[in-house]
Amino acid sequence: MIQHLLDGLLVGSILSLGATGLTMVMHMLRFANFSHAELLSIGAYSALVFDQLFKAVMPFTAVQIGPVSMTWALVLAMILSMAVTGASAVLFDRLIFRRVREKGEELSMVFASFGLALVIRNVIGLVFGLQTQLFSQDIVFATVLSRDPLILVKPDQLATLAIALVVMLILHLVLSRTTFGYSLRAVAENPELAQINGINLQRMIVIVWIIGGGLAALAGVFYGLTNQITPVMGRDLVLPIFAATIVGGIGSIYGALLGGFIVGIAANMALVVLPSGYSPSVPFLIILAVLLIRPNGLFGEERA
């Protein structure tokens, strides 16, 4: 039980990071972006490439940090991959979404995002192969926190959770203390009024894609670190991430952060009663429950 809670917390932090960017994009551009989870894959795979590059070029970076399997090379790779993923998100917007948007075919954007997701996922499969990959082949043993009940935690999991929480704290401080954060929230609430107040909407869209992509990359690396990297990780994560945005209320950044943890924990707790084969269905059950009880989510506002 406590083990499930811990695992849920960890998965939850990954979903939170993914859902934050998604909810911002969904709110601002008004479409369900089914290609968002592929940004996690792009993040994980580009970190993999940079990681191997750094280890080859600068062997001194291939040193593990304390008890975790993460190396300095991977930390650098992670930061670079956030930039690459953010840039990819902007590129996809330029190439596809903005052009569909400007044609006035807003409803078609969800279609375009599905098509884009298919392309990204399978191009990754073609380039990197369909097999699963790991950042490190070293086996890191789990630490026994308690024997009765048996609770195991890997140092990587704790490190991941800690970094995710720090990133969320930074995000919170930016949103609640800086005028830049206010303008992000302003654009999310009312784009036209934001524009009247001197905010350049086109530039904000670019910034939101960069933030969303960067957070997604982080989530992707963490997922790769605590699970494994596969070309289909986006396919497996898209529904839980959507569930997190719906739990929190579409457009609410804080809702997405909390929603990620709720979905992560609920999905792991559900395994106490459900056979594990059913775990892919759990996010859908959560969505159904939210729609029945509180359709606009925890923090969402009603809007057409």
């Binding site: 089914f34 969800v110 959507f242």
Partner: peptide
């Protein structure tokens, strides 16, 4: 609800 909910739910129903 707004149209994203239908998109996500129908996708979810297929997975489930």
């Amino acid at each position: 609800l707004r149209h994203d909910y239908l998109a996500i739910s129908t996708f979810g129903v297929a997975v489930a």
